[in-house]
Design a binder for these strands. Structure first.
Length: 489
RNA sequence: CGGGGUGUAGCGCAGCCCGGUUAGCGCACCUGCUUGGGGAGCAGGGGGUCCCAAGUUCGAAUCUUGGUACCCCGACCA
């Protein structure tokens, strides 16, 4: 990791924003907090989306699509849910504009086109989906429903940051309905495993699977499970969540089914999602001061071939030959034959956008029957014989993928610190960052106090957490296990 | 909603304190030549509502007042 930890948070902010901009991932939009995703950024999202989509389908899920607008009354039906989202909702009040009679060239909302019932732009779709599921579910034979949708949602957050938290963002939200609690919990955990598998093995980001405390739970959930990642500045990032909703939404939206004994029961529910925030996590996990570093499995282009100093018939022939061999192995490769840019410029450019492997081919190399291969993660350069170069690159891509994961994991593991006093918790958070493993008495009051003073929240109680008798670092009350605290995005 | 900061060419900025030629620099862009193994050099060129409004003044990017937008830090937040 080229970026060293400094005490100045703004440095990280700036570093992060620079990479988003220089790597050509996104632009600011005219609307505050929104983001224009550029081709390179969107290609990343497409790879994330397509891979997860395949994983969902392999586990029996189907895609659906529900509307962008929610009638306001829908949001009122589940009390906790409403309370959690009300203060960040965009509201549609009119359906027509007209010329402003007092101000030429300006438009105003036509007062005669005021909506009877205001519409909410979905912050999440539980309400409309459960309103619909009421009609789709009559019998145990209709269950389970295993549906997912790829959509955009809007949450009018006060503070935004490209990818990590934007006003509008792209995500997938799965909403499933089950006949038993056990089956719903299994589904919740199955999805959590898919998320962890994807984020670790594709994005090369190590995560901790865990369950949220009541304070951090999704509005309307019985239990919220999560995967928590650690960024290079020592702050945690919630990378995905999977909620066991119990019968809360079924009760609010009156979704019942007849069981085998011909008795009415409320349906059990789950919901789960990951968003474009994952791209933010990817940036903050792997980038260095030269720009983005992409894990090969997700990189839109895995290899770029750069003729040095510019394309010639011989170089182009060699380039196409290597590209063909690579494509035969399913490797995504691009030949940059742009004559208007010089090699040095291209090198810097491809490093900035994070292409894992660069192949340089010049007359000098060809004369020796070699090419120059540069890997983005370590910036090493190797001179490799053109014989068997495709095999070499294939192996190298695997190496880079696992190297990225391993070094992120080493960093993460080095930043899980056990403490036994509140003073130490604060000290570690201030000086070292990362996760802090400490005893907690299990009450929301204690968690709130710690948050207030130390600015850290309980990120999760890890799954399969070992039991250990101890004393709460704040109150000294007995505790059965350690939990993970961190400052978070 | 609090605390800071910034609005001057596509981007990044200087100029403002102490008012006075035609508003300047770097990057980017266009043309030409020379180049070409780590962000090319030289020459020429195009591009401006100095955020908006009112005021002070012979004269405002610069001073005064009001407005507005954006950024950063908090609070808030799957």
């Amino acid at each position: 990791m080229a970026k060293e930890i400094t005490s100045r948070e703004e440095d990280y902010s700036q570093w992060y924003l620079d990479i988003v901009k220089k790597a050509g991932l996104a632009d600011n939009s005219p609307v505050r907090g929104c983001m224009i995703i550029k081709p390179h950024g969107f290609a990343l999202w497409e790879n994330i989306r397509d891979t997860l989509d395949r994983m969902f389908k392999e586990t029996g899920h189907s895609n659906v699509y529900f509307p962008l607008f929610l009638p306001k009354s829908f949001l009122e039906k589940e009390e906790e849910h409403a309370e959690g989202f009300a203060k960040e909702c965009a509201v549609v009040t009119h359906y027509r504009l007209k010329a402003d009679p007092n101000n030429k060239g300006k438009l105003i909302a036509d007062p005669e086109a005021k909506l009877e019932e205001e519409l909410i732009i979905r912050p999440t779709s539980e309400t409309i989906i459960w309103d619909t599921y009421r009609n789709w579910i009559k019998s145990y034979r209709d269950l389970p429903l295993l549906y997912n949708q790829w959509a955009n949602v809007v949450r009018w957050e006060m503070r935004t940051r490209p990818f990590l938290r934007t006003t509008e963002f792209l995500w997938q939200e799965g909403h499933t309905a089950h006949s038993t609690s056990t089956e719903a919990v299994e589904e919740t955990l199955k999805i959590l495993d898919i998320y962890a598998d994807f984020v670790e093995n594709w994005m090369a980001m190590p995560v901790i699977k865990g369950v949220k405390t009541a304070n951090e739970r999704f509005a309307g959930a019985v239990d919220t499970y999560c995967i928590e990642a650690l960024m290079q500045d020592g702050k945690a990032l919630q990378a995905g969540t999977s909620h066991f909703l119990g019968q809360n939404f079924a009760r609010s939206f009156d979704v019942k089914f007849l069981n085998k004994e011909n008795k009415e029961e409320l349906v059990w529910a789950t919901s789960w999602g990951v968003s474009t925030r994952l791209i933010g996590g990817l940036i903050m996990t792997h980038s260095d001061d030269d720009g983005l570093i992409l894990p090969p499995k997700l990189a839109p282009q895995q290899v770029v071939i750069v003729p040095i100093p510019k394309p010639s018939p011989e170089i182009m022939e060699a380039s196409h030959s290597i590209a063909k061999q690579l494509r035969a192995k399913g490797i995504r490769v691009k030949i940059d034959d742009d004559e208007t840019k010089r090699p040095g410029f291209k090198f810097a450019e491809y490093e900035m956008i994070g292409i894992p492997v660069r192949v340089g081919i010049g007359a000098r190399d060809l004369a020796e029957g070699k090419v120059e291969i540069a890997r983005r993660d370590t910036k090493e350069k190797m001179s490799v014989s053109t014989e068997g170069v495709a095999d070499y690159i294939q192996t190298l891509l695997y190496d880079i993928q696992s190297n990225l994961f391993n070094r992120a994991k080493t960093y993460r593991d080095e930043h899980i610190t056990q403490v036994d006093t509140f003073e130490d918790l604060q000290k570690v958070l201030d000086e070292k960052g990362g996760f802090v493993s400490a005893h907690w008495d299990g009450t929301s009051e204690t968690e709130d106090k710690i948050k207030e003073v130390a600015k850290a929240t309980i990120r999760c109680i890890p799954i399969d957490n070992p039991l250990e008798d101890g004393k709460c670092i704040l109150t000294g009350n007995p505790s059965k296990q350690r939990v993970l605290f961190a400052r978070a995005y």
